[in-house]
Simulated assay, not measured.
Amino acid sequence: MSMETMMETTQFLTFTLAEEVFAVDVARVREILEITSITKVPQVPDFMRGVINLRGCVVPVIDLRLKFGLEETAQTVNTCIIVVEVDMGGENIVLGALADSVQEVIEMEPSQIEAAPHIGTHLKTEFLKGMGKHNERFVMILDIDKVFSGAELAAVSG
């Protein structure tokens, strides 16, 4: 979704990674789980922590901190798994994304969202739909479909 298509108020789930606030479109979130045992899988990318059993389905769990070049997510009482749907060539893939904590669901209008800056962040900006401002703090709005390349998703879903 480009900035031009974000013409109406959108709800976002906010969460933290390394004390920074990120957001993902609520429409892409299936559920939020407490941290559970994650089964390690051999020979997968470093950012893939393993898989969980979600009501009989195998769901890959991704450490967004590692994906973004940060330190591995530490397990705390607030650590959770955000189960999201990611589009891979027209097919929806269900993934679990580790987050330090989930904050809240917020609404943002297009006027509150600016294009992602091209410099000044430790994150590659192609992952970002934009930067929003909520309660005097910047929120990095992720384009969850662009966080992972097709090859990475194929490796994870395979």
Rank of each mutant, 00 (worst) to 15 (best):
S101K: 11
T16N: 08
Q11I: 03
Q75Y: 15
I106L: 11
E152W: 02
F47H: 03
Q11D: 06
P117K: 09
L98R: 00
L66F: 10
I141H: 04
T9S: 09
D145A: 06
F12E: 01
D143M: 01
I93A: 12
G50W: 07
V21P: 01
I81D: 04
A155G: 10
I144Y: 00
Q43Y: 08
I52T: 10
E91L: 06
L54Q: 09
S2D: 08
S157V: 04
E31V: 13
T9V: 12
L64P: 01
T73L: 04
T10Q: 04
L17V: 11
G69L: 07
M88W: 01
E72N: 07
A23N: 08
E71W: 11
P45L: 05
E136K: 07
A116P: 05
V24P: 01
A18S: 08
N135W: 12
V26P: 05
V29F: 02
V147N: 00
R137Q: 15
S101D: 09
A74T: 08
K133S: 14
D143P: 01
I141R: 01
Q112I: 05
R65T: 00
T121E: 07
V51E: 06
H122E: 14
L123N: 11
E34R: 10
A23R: 07
K146M: 12
S157N: 11
V61L: 07
T73M: 03
F138Q: 12
F68T: 00
V105C: 07
G130F: 10
F12G: 03
S101P: 12
V94G: 13
K124D: 14
M140S: 02
C80G: 11
L64W: 02
V59M: 09
K146N: 12
G120E: 13
T9C: 15
V105F: 12
